[in-house]
């Protein structure tokens, strides 16, 4: 399957939260008790049962208030930090660009959540497994749109081929920039290119997003240097011991060790 994309055009979003509801419905996720966080936002962060939610920022400029609204969910990164960090090979990436967790393999170590620049995966404390947006992979593979895209009334969410939608997004950006000069695309290069790509009306920091999300240096060092080199070091110690045993055998040290262990005077 070719690389897919969901274009999140925040300039068209009305903050209706229908995507949130559609996600819950399709994925059979129970509703959770919410409370007001800020503005119209009622969900603070992802939970194992809430994979997408709306963030609201009220921005004041020239005594005029503008809503900056964003549908938050897993970005489905091309270079996914969670996948690299996973201890159990439970996270994989599909050709279509979706990053999915295999719950049979997940052991709940939490390395994915800590290394995700967006803190997306969340643990179900009862079964010790991590959950996040699946991108409705099972719908997509059956030629259906993701549930959130399917339900979006103002057309803020669009699903399609990445190459096609990316061009469309850029065209839309030039248009939006006429009225919102700070508008920008987020997700074209970030994390190797994300499957959920945004048109933001302001800088990512204003939305609480990292300006330059990357695979953490500590993660690269850990997985690409310390673990392989450490494996060689431990193997080397084992090999040295094997050689040592062999050398002692060949020298006949084991035979005579009883009587000559004291012949070895160093002083």
């Amino acid at each position: 399957m070719t690389r897919k994309m969901v274009f999140v055009d925040t300039s068209k979003c009305t903050g209706c939260k229908a995507c949130d509801v559609a996600c819950k419905e399709w994925n059979e996720l129970p509703a959770e008790k919410t409370h007001l966080i800020t503005s119209y936002q009622t969900q603070k962060d992802f939970t194992p049962k809430t994979w997408t939610y709306m963030t609201f920022i009220e921005k004041y400029e020239n005594q005029k208030m503008n809503f900056l609204m964003r549908k938050a969910q897993c970005f489905h990164c091309a270079e996914a930090a969670c996948l690299k960090a996973c201890s159990s090979n439970a996270i994989s990436k599909t050709d279509s660009g979706y990053v999915v967790i295999d719950h049979d393999k997940c052991i709940g170590c939490g390395y994915c959540e800590e290394n995700c620049p967006f803190g997306v995966p969340k643990a179900d404390q009862a079964n010790k497994k991590y959950y996040k947006c699946t991108g409705c992979i099972e719908r997509v593979e059956n030629n259906l749109k993701p549930a959130c895209v399917h339900t979006c009334q103002p057309g803020a969410l669009e699903f399609g081929e990445r190459v096609v939608l990316l061009g469309q997004a850029k065209k839309r950006l030039t248009e939006v920039q006429k009225t919102n000069p700070k508008a920008q695309i987020y997700g074209e290069k970030e994390m190797g290119g994300t499957t959920f790509l945004y048109l933001l009306l302001d800088r990512p920091e204003v939305y609480g997003l990292p300006a330059n999300p990357t695979i953490p240096l500590s993660l690269t060092l850990w997985k690409d240097v310390i673990q392989p080199v450490g494996g060689i070091a431990v193997g080397g110690a084992g090999a040295a011991v094997a050689v040592g045993v062999l050398a002692n055998l060949l020298r006949g040290n084991y035979r005579s060790s009883e009587d000559d262990s004291n012949n070895h005077a160093n002083s």
């Binding site: 953490p216 500590s218 850990w222 310390i226 494996g231 080397g236 110690a237 011991v241």
Partner: peptide
């Protein structure tokens, strides 16, 4: 900080395991 704890934990383990073998 948590991200750095992982490589530190593994590196400590590797050093001690190699030393233990010897």
């Amino acid at each position: 900080l948590v991200r750095w704890a992982y490589p530190v934990h593994d590196l400590s383990m590797i050093m001690m395991t190699a030393a233990t073998i010897g």
